Amino acid sequence: MAMNGTITTWFKDKGFGFIKDENGDNRYFHVIKVANPDLIKKDAAVTFEPTTNNKGLSAYAVKVVPL
């Protein structure tokens, strides 16, 4: 089920960042999981599918909501 969130941290040079989800949890995401990576920036609103990996909470099918 899709969730909403906000990008809180973005490491462009490393290709990953973190999203604060609607429950207040931080989720890892990688640029290859983003549909529109050219719009990635700190504080951008996103929708995504929540999941977990071996390191904890993460996100896939991430879409940055255009302003």
Rank of each mutant, 00 (worst) to 15 (best):
K14W: 11
G56P: 04
K42Y: 07
P37Q: 06
K63P: 00
W10N: 00
T6G: 02
L67F: 12
P50T: 05
D43W: 15
P37M: 05
I19S: 00
F29V: 04
T47P: 01
N54W: 12
T52E: 12
K55M: 12
A59M: 04
Y60E: 15
K55C: 11
G56L: 08
G5Y: 03
G5W: 02
G15W: 05
K33P: 03
T51P: 03
K14E: 07
D25T: 05
D21G: 04
K12D: 07
T9A: 15
V62H: 02
Y28W: 11
D21M: 02
G15T: 03
N54C: 11
V65N: 11
T8I: 14
K20F: 11
Y28T: 04
N53P: 04
M3Y: 07
F48N: 00
A44D: 03
I32G: 15
V31H: 07
M1R: 13
K63D: 05
V62M: 04
I7S: 01
I40Q: 00
G24S: 05
L39N: 07
D43M: 10
A59D: 02
T8S: 10
T52K: 13
F11P: 01
D43A: 09
G5I: 02
K33L: 12
Y28L: 06
F48M: 02
P66Q: 13
V46G: 01
V31T: 07
T8Y: 09
L67C: 12
T47C: 08
I40L: 12
E22Q: 12
F16E: 04
T8K: 10
D13W: 10
M1S: 15
N53Q: 07
V31N: 05
D38A: 12
D25H: 09
I19F: 03
F29E: 00
D25R: 08
L39G: 06
F11S: 05
F11Y: 13
L39R: 09
D13I: 08
D43S: 10
M1F: 11
H30L: 08
A35D: 12
V62S: 00
N26R: 14
D25K: 08
F16S: 03
G24A: 04
P50Q: 03
A44I: 07
V65S: 08
E22R: 06
T6S: 06
T47V: 12
I32D: 15
D21N: 00
F48H: 00
T9Y: 14
A2F: 11
K33Y: 15
K63Q: 12
M3S: 05
S58F: 08
D25L: 08
G17C: 02
G5R: 00
P66E: 14
K20Q: 09
I7M: 01
T52Y: 12
H30F: 06
L57D: 04
S58V: 11
F18S: 04
M1A: 13
A44W: 04
N26P: 05
I32V: 12
A44T: 05
K20A: 07
D13T: 11
L67R: 10
D38Q: 13
E49Y: 15
F11L: 06
N53G: 13
K33E: 15
K41Q: 11
V64K: 00
K41R: 13
T51M: 13
S58L: 08
M1K: 15
K20C: 11
T6P: 00
T47L: 09
D43Q: 09
I19V: 03
L57K: 09
K12L: 07
D21Y: 01
A45P: 10
T9K: 14
K63V: 14
V64N: 02
T51A: 14
D43T: 07
A59P: 01
F29H: 00
V46H: 01
A44R: 08
V46A: 02
A35R: 12
G15V: 03
A2M: 13
N53H: 09
G5Q: 00
I7W: 01
I32Q: 15
K20S: 07
F18P: 00
L57M: 09
T6Y: 12
I19N: 01
V62L: 04
D38G: 10
K55Y: 15
T47N: 07
A61Q: 10
G5V: 01
G24N: 07
E49M: 15
T9D: 09
M1H: 14
F48P: 00
T52A: 12
I7K: 00
D13Q: 11
F29R: 00
R27E: 00
G15E: 05
S58E: 10
V62P: 01
N4Q: 12
P50E: 03
T8Q: 09
T51Q: 11
D13M: 10
D25E: 10
Y60K: 15
G17H: 01
R27D: 00
P66C: 12
Y28M: 05
P66H: 11
D13K: 11
Y60F: 13
M1D: 10
L67G: 14
T51E: 12
H30A: 08
D43L: 08
V65Q: 11
N36E: 06
N26Y: 15
N36Y: 05
N53E: 07
A59S: 06
D25C: 10
D25Q: 11
T51F: 14
T8W: 08
F29G: 00
M3N: 04
V65I: 13
P50N: 02
P50H: 04
E49D: 06
Y28I: 06
D43P: 02
P50S: 04
N54G: 13
N23C: 11
D38E: 14
D38V: 08
N4A: 11
K41T: 10
K14G: 06
K20N: 07
K55I: 11
D21L: 03
A44V: 08
N54H: 13
F16N: 02
T9G: 10
K12Y: 08
K20D: 04
G17S: 01
D38C: 11
F18N: 04
G5A: 03
F11E: 05
K63H: 12
I7P: 00
I32E: 15
K55D: 07
A35V: 15
